[in-house]
Computed example of a mutant assay.
Amino acid sequence: MHELSLCQALLDQVEQIARDHGATRVDRILLRVGPLAGVEPMLLQHAYPLAAAGTLAEAAELVIEPSGVRVRCSDCDAETDATPNRLLCGACGSFKTRLISGDELLLANLELTIPDD
């Protein structure tokens, strides 16, 4: 399962950040996932408990926030929303666009428990 290996890599990153900040626990993980990321959010959600077992993030809530597809037009320089299967400029209709967002798998936010010294 592709999503399980993604969860394991995510948790490696999360644990490193938590250790760097002296956290004893990870309470919440916010991910932003674009529709072109090649990741199935529901499968990621199901794989998470398996990957998180025995880590600082074992009891953390995993929140997956979808992100939209945005393109920049080479013809009119507009930045507009697009659909995953139709990356056309929303302003002029040109097909000469560059993807700005929609393919990301981004660790957007962590909530950590850090003990008082």
Rank of each mutant, 00 (worst) to 15 (best):
H2T: 06
S5C: 03
S5V: 00
C7E: 10
C7Q: 03
C7N: 02
C7H: 04
C7R: 00
Q8N: 01
Q8G: 01
A9D: 12
A9K: 05
L10R: 04
L10F: 07
L10W: 05
L11P: 06
Q13D: 11
Q13G: 08
V14T: 11
E15K: 04
Q16F: 13
Q16G: 06
I17P: 00
A18N: 04
D20Q: 13
G22A: 05
G22P: 10
A23T: 06
R25N: 08
R25M: 07
D27Y: 10
R28F: 07
R28Q: 14
R28G: 08
I29L: 11
I29P: 14
V33M: 00
P35M: 01
L36E: 02
V39L: 05
P41W: 07
L43E: 11
Y48P: 05
P49R: 09
P49H: 11
P49S: 02
L50W: 10
L50C: 05
A51M: 03
A51P: 05
A52Y: 13
A52R: 04
A52I: 03
A52Q: 04
A53S: 12
A53G: 08
T55P: 01
T55R: 00
A59I: 04
A60F: 14
L62Q: 11
L62S: 05
V63S: 09
S67T: 15
G68D: 13
G68N: 11
V69H: 03
V71R: 08
V71W: 15
R72E: 15
R72V: 14
R72H: 15
D75N: 11
D77H: 14
T80W: 12
T80E: 13
T80K: 10
A82E: 02
T83P: 07
P84C: 01
R86L: 14
R86C: 08
L87V: 14
L87H: 02
C89D: 03
C89P: 06
C89Q: 02
A91Y: 01
A91N: 06
G93C: 01
G93W: 00
F95S: 10
F95W: 13
K96S: 13
K96Q: 11
L99D: 00
I100V: 15
I100P: 09
S101N: 07
G102F: 03
D103A: 14
D103H: 15
E104V: 02
E104P: 04
L105W: 07
L105R: 01
L110G: 05
L112S: 03
T113F: 13
I114S: 10
P115R: 04
P115D: 01
D116I: 09
D117V: 15
D117W: 14
